[in-house]
Computed example of a mutant assay.
Amino acid sequence: MPLTTIAGLEIDLVRKRMRSLRLTVYAGGRIRVAVPLNTPVAAVEQFIAARHAWIEKHQQQFATREPQPSLQYTSGEQHPYQSRSYELVVETGRAHVTLDEAARQIRLRVPTDSTLAQREAVMAAFYRQQLKQLVPELLLKWEPVVGRQAATWGVKQMRTRWGTCNIGARRIWLNLELMKRPLPCLEYVVVHELTHLHERLHNARFWSLMDQFMPDWRTHKAELNRIHLAPGTPADAD
């Protein structure tokens, strides 16, 4: 997409059918601004100029984030589980994963001729199972605090978000990668998405509610902000 220089910054400017302007800063520093079709250029310039400091702040945050390691799913690799590092031990057999807390090992059992993609899929299924066991208890804990209930929830691999909320359906999605992060980070995303059932936007009211429901949310958000999910990761849960 051609870049446009606005307010001294190179911008991916997208005009589409929408109600309000939306700004996103991506890993690597790329800036994307989506605006309603007939928005005057002057209004776009004013919008970006007013958020110049915010843009610089998030570009700096991305510059300090840790990239996700490239894994081959072979014995001896270190794999995260709830922020702790475990040695991967690959064994031959029917596809299965066992967590050995005492030995700090994850035992991955796969057929001899398994491919990298197949080993990765078995590990992903393990993380999904573990996360799905945790979420119901967290919803029981936090829904009364937030004062809203999710009608349904799910887990999926997301390249650009830690979580999302479909407000109309009252459905929340949680990123499979959260099983690799500290438990309080998972709780932060659960509370974040439930709070969207009060307030759709990331505005002053939303963050004030977050202060009320989870006063230490900034600590957990900062922990997640250290990690690159993928090239193009925005700054937060949605």
Rank of each mutant, 00 (worst) to 15 (best):
P2Y: 08
L3W: 14
T4K: 13
T5M: 08
T5V: 11
I6S: 15
I6A: 08
A7R: 04
G8K: 09
L9R: 15
L9C: 04
E10R: 07
D12T: 05
D12F: 00
L13K: 15
L13A: 15
R15D: 05
K16A: 15
R17I: 13
R19W: 02
R19I: 03
R19V: 00
T24K: 08
T24P: 01
T24N: 00
V25A: 01
V25W: 01
R30V: 12
R30P: 08
I31S: 06
R32A: 12
V33F: 08
A34M: 06
N38A: 10
N38V: 11
P40Q: 10
V41D: 06
A42D: 13
A42W: 00
A49V: 01
A50F: 07
A53L: 11
A53P: 01
E56H: 14
K57G: 00
H58V: 14
Q59L: 09
Q60D: 13
Q61P: 04
F62S: 05
A63R: 15
T64N: 12
T64L: 01
E66H: 11
P67I: 09
Q68G: 11
Y73F: 14
T74A: 15
T74S: 15
S75W: 11
G76S: 12
S83M: 02
R84Y: 02
Y86D: 08
Y86Q: 11
V90G: 00
E91K: 11
E91C: 10
E91D: 03
T92H: 11
G93F: 05
D100N: 14
E101C: 06
E101M: 01
R104F: 13
R107S: 05
R109V: 11
V110Q: 11
V110R: 07
D113V: 01
D113I: 05
T115V: 04
T115M: 04
L116C: 05
A117K: 13
A117C: 02
A117V: 13
E120K: 09
M123S: 06
M123F: 09
A125R: 14
Y127K: 13
Y127E: 07
R128D: 07
Q129G: 13
L131W: 13
V135E: 10
V135M: 08
L138N: 12
W142R: 08
W142Q: 10
E143V: 05
V145N: 00
G147K: 00
G147V: 08
R148V: 12
W153H: 10
W153V: 10
W153Q: 02
G154H: 00
G154E: 03
R161Q: 12
G163M: 02
G163H: 02
T164G: 05
C165L: 04
N166W: 08
G168H: 13
G168F: 03
A169F: 04
A169G: 09
R170H: 09
R171P: 01
N175I: 11
L176V: 13
L176K: 06
E177M: 12
L178P: 06
P182L: 06
P182N: 14
C185A: 15
C185E: 11
C185R: 04
L186G: 13
V190E: 04
V191Q: 08
H192R: 07
E193T: 05
T195P: 13
H196Q: 07
H198T: 07
E199H: 09
R205Q: 12
W207M: 04
M210E: 02
F213R: 07
F213W: 03
M214C: 06
M214Q: 10
M214E: 05
D216C: 06
T219L: 08
H220F: 10
H220I: 04
K221M: 01
N225W: 00
H228V: 11
A230E: 15
G232H: 02
